[in-house]
């Protein structure tokens, strides 16, 4: 098992010039690791819709990958997004950060916590590049491979649950985040995912 912060620190080393969309618990940690215009803290959000937002962005900007940090609870609210991602492939790197809890509401267990195989779900809908890591050493060793090459990629990370967390806040207003992101997309020419 690894902590959420450990998982995201490893990601921060490998995200390159990709857009990162952070939701829920990840949104409370990611800004302390990266706060560039390509970091989009999706707060306030529509429940479970982070992957779909990322998918649209990736389809609009095919040369630029989009990483989305999604919890297991959010994932369960929108499992159909996996099917849509397989139907319309794009450079989406979906990290399912599984702590088995609704962390920001007080740590209640998510349905099926500890029993759901998110990797099998992703493979079953036709996503070929699927990775699973349940400790920091394995994730650190595998991150470069998982995050290299074209999407869609699903990465299932098992992390420790945290209790006593409050709802995340964005570091700046949504309008400013959108303006920064659009400007960065326009001005920064990315290298294509290799």
């Amino acid at each position: 098992m690894m902590t959420l912060r450990e998982a995201l620190e490893i990601l921060a080393h490998h995200r390159g010039q990709r857009i990162v969309i952070a939701t829920m618990s990840s949104a409370s940690v990611w800004p302390s690791l990266s706060d560039t215009p390509l970091d989009f803290i999706y707060v306030p959000s529509a429940m479970g819709q982070g992957p779909s937002l990322a998918h649209g962005l990736a389809l609009a900007q095919p040369e630029r990958g989009v990483i989305v940090l999604n919890g297991d609870g959010c994932m369960l609210m929108n499992l159909g997004c996996l099917v849509t991602l397989a139907e319309h492939p794009a450079n989406v790197y979906l990290l399912i950060i599984d702590n088995g809890l609704y962390e920001v509401t007080g740590g209640q267990p998510t349905p099926g916590a500890g029993r759901i195989d998110f990797a099998a779900l992703a493979r079953a809908v036709g996503i070929a590049r699927v990775y699973s890591y349940d400790n920091a050493s394995a994730w650190r060793a595998g991150a470069a491979e998982a995050l290299t090459g074209p999407g869609p990629v699903v990465i299932w990370l098992k992390v420790e649950g945290r209790l006593g967390q409050s709802a995340p806040k964005a570091p700046r207003p949504m309008a400013e985040q959108i303006q920064r992101l659009r400007q960065a997309i326009t001005e920064q020419i990315p290298e294509p995912p290799s």
Binding site: L53, H55, L59, Q61, R182, I185
Partner: peptide, 8 residues
């Protein structure tokens, strides 16, 4: 919405 953000 993602498409919009990406300029489509």
């Amino acid at each position: 919405a993602g498409l919009h953000l990406g300029g489509k």
